[in-house]
Design a protein around this nucleic acid. Structure first.
Length: 360
DNA sequence: ATTGAAGTACACG
DNA sequence: CTAACGCGTGTACTTCAAT
C-alpha cells in the first residue's frame, strides 16, 4: 500500500466544553457531565468532565457516586445529547470545508479521521512532494484548530501519522489543545516508551494478560515487541496478529466515510432493583417503542431480537431469537416479550437493567 | 463440512 | 458490610444444532 497521511481530530472534553461555553457562570469551575449524582447515591457514570474536574481525579466512565465524593462542589450536569449533536454537526461542517477532497470518517460526535489521499494543495506540490505533504497536513491541522476555536469557541487536539492507530495515539499525546505529527521515520521511537493501554483495542483484560505474560505490572510497547507473533496468537487468537502489527506501528484499517447501521438497541437501569412484573413490562414496552421508532427511521430490515437482563450483583444474561426478515415487523413485540418472560420465569433475583437490541 | 443461531466476552467514547 | 460499575455499538469467540 502507498504511504498514507492520516489525521485524527478529537474535541477536548467535548460535552463539558460545550456546557461551559453555553453557561459562562460555570467557567473556571470543575464541570462533570453525566448521570445525576443524587447526593452520592446515583447509579450512573461520568460521561465527560472538564480538565478542572480531572485535577480532582475524576474521569469518564467513573461511577458518578465516586466522582461526587471526590468533588461534591463540582457542577454536575445531565447529558444534553441534542445540544451536542447540533454542535457536532457544525464542527463536522468546518472539517468538511477545510478538508475538501479528503476522506472524512466521523466517529461518534467528537472525533473524525481524515485521509489526505486527494488533498488538492498536496497533490499540486509536485516538487519535494513528500516533505510538503507532511508539512501541508500540519498546516491544515493548525487551520482546523483555529477555525473551530473561532467559530465554535471550542478546543480540539489533532494527531497525524501514517495510519489510524498512530494518528489516534499521537492525538492522545497532543491533548489538550495540541497538534502532534509522527512521521513514519519517528513512529517506532514515538511508540516505544508508551504503555500498551495506549494501543486502541488493548483494554483492561488484554493488559492483564500481557502483564502476566511479561511478569511485570507495566508493559511498554517496546516490551510488547519482544513477544513473537505466535505468543500473541496463542494469547489472543486472531486479534493477536493485529496486536503484533500495532506494536510495530503498523495498521491497515482504512478511513471509511460511510458506515451502515448493523444494530439498534435501548437499555434501562432501574433506580432501584425490581422484580415487579408490572414495572418491568411497562419499562420494556417503552424501550420496544423507542427501538421501533429507530427501526422505522433507519428504513432497514432486521431479523434478530436480543433481550438483555442484568440482575442484582451485576451478572448479565442475554437471550435472542432470529425470525424471517419479512415477518420481523409483526413479530418484534411478541417475540421480545416472550424472551423477557423467559427471564422472569427462570430468575428469582431482582432486576437491575433490561434492554432490547435488534440486528440486521 | 458448512452455516447459522444463541450466548458470552471485550472494547471504545 | 467490601464497594462503586450507563448506554449504544461494534467485533470475535465458543458451543451446539440443522442443513
Amino acid at each position: 500500500m502507498q504511504e498514507r497521511i492520516i489525521m485524527l481530530l478529537d474535541m477536548d472534553a467535548f460535552f463539558a466544553e460545550i456546557e461551559e461555553r453555553e453557561s459562562p457562570q460555570f467557567q473556571g469551575k470543575p464541570v462533570v457531565v453525566g448521570a445525576d449524582p443524587q447526593e452520592g447515591k446515583g447509579r450512573g457514570v461520568v460521561s465527560t468532565c472538564n480538565y478542572k474536574a480531572r485535577k480532582f481525579g475524576i474521569h469518564s466512565a467513573m461511577p458518578i457516586s465516586q466522582a461526587y465524593h471526590l468533588c461534591p462542589q463540582a457542577v454536575f450536569l445531565p447529558v444534553n445529547m441534542a445540544l451536542y449533536s447540533r454542535v457536532s454537526e457544525r464542527v463536522m461542517k468546518i472539517i468538511q470545508k477545510v478538508c475538501k477532497g479528503c476522506l472524512v470518517e466521523q466517529v461518534f460526535l467528537d472525533e473524525a479521521y481524515i485521509d489526505f489521499v486527494l488533498f488538492p494543495t498536496i497533490v499540486k506540490n509536485k516538487t519535494k512532494e513528500k516533505e510538503n505533504a507532511w508539512r501541508g497536513a500540519e498546516m491544515l491541522a493548525k487551520k482546523l484548530t483555529m477555525d473551530i476555536l473561532e467559530q465554535e469557541k471550542l478546543t480540539c487536539s489533532i494527531g497525524i501519522g501514517s495510519n489510524k492507530m498512530v494518528a489516534k495515539i499521537a492525538c492522545q499525546a497532543a491533548k489538550p489543545n495540541g497538534i502532534k505529527v509522527v512521521e513514519p521515520k519517528d513512529t517506532i521511537s514515538f511508540l516505544s516508551p508508551l504503555h500498551i493501554r495506549e494501543i486502541p483495542g488493548i483494554g483492561p483484560k488484554a493488559d492483564i494478560k500481557l502483564q502476566d505474560f511479561f511478569k511485570t505490572n507495566a508493559v511498554s510497547i517496546e516490551k510488547l515487541r519482544e513477544a513473537s507473533k505466535q505468543d500473541l496468537i496463542s494469547l489472543f487468537g486472531v486479534i493477536g496478529n493485529s496486536i503484533y502489527e500495532k506494536a510495530r506501528g503498523r495498521d491497515t484499517v482504512l478511513v471509511t466515510p460511510e458506515h451502515e447501521i448493523k444494530s439498534i438497541g435501548k437499555e434501562h437501569t432501574f433506580f432501584k432493583d425490581t422484580r415487579d412484573p408490572e414495572e418491568l413490562l411497562a419499562v420494556f414496552e417503552d424501550l420496544l417503542c423507542e427501538v421501533q421508532d429507530e427501526i422505522h427511521k433507519s428504513k432497514l430490515q432486521f431479523r434478530t431480537i436480543t433481550v438483555v437482563c442484568r440482575f442484582q450483583g451485576f451478572t448479565t444474561y442475554t437471550k435472542s431469537k432470529t425470525v424471517d426478515k419479512n415477518l420481523f415487523t409483526e413479530l418484534f413485540f411478541k417475540e421480545a416479550k416472550k424472551l423477557l418472560l423467559r427471564f422472569v420465569v427462570e430468575q428469582l433475583k431482582p432486576v437491575r437493567l433490561i434492554g432490547v437490541r435488534v440486528k440486521v
